[in-house]
């Protein structure tokens, strides 16, 4: 059983190589400039998890992350701006 997770993009780190969209086309699409649109919904199937991991591993800018979707303690969520 895989741990619940979702894809997250660090937009400032992303350099638009676009490999992620080839590895995980069900969750990542490229916009008109070649930068990825990432579906933030939690990954469901085993296949999605596998393709998401491949996309994360393939990113040359290390801009794509797999983030656990387990509930975060409230203290951690505070602040931001």
């Amino acid at each position: 059983m895989t741990t619940p997770a979702r894809l997250r993009l660090d937009g400032a780190a992303c350099t638009g190589h676009g490999i992620c969209a080839l590895r995980c086309p069900d969750r990542i699409a490229l916009d008109q400039w070649g930068f990825p649109h990432v579906d933030p919904a939690p990954l469901t199937t085993r296949g999605e998890h596998t393709r998401a991991r491949l996309a994360v591993a393939a990113c040359p800018a290390r801009a794509l992350l797999l983030e656990p979707t387990a509930p975060v303690p409230p203290r951690r969520r505070a602040g931001g701006r």
């Binding site: 400032a12 350099t15 638009g16 916009d31 930068f35």
Partner: peptide
């Protein structure tokens, strides 16, 4: 734009 993110810099 801070020029960091593609969709912002180009969009």
């Amino acid at each position: 734009t801070a020029g960091q993110c593609g969709p912002c810099l180009l969009g």
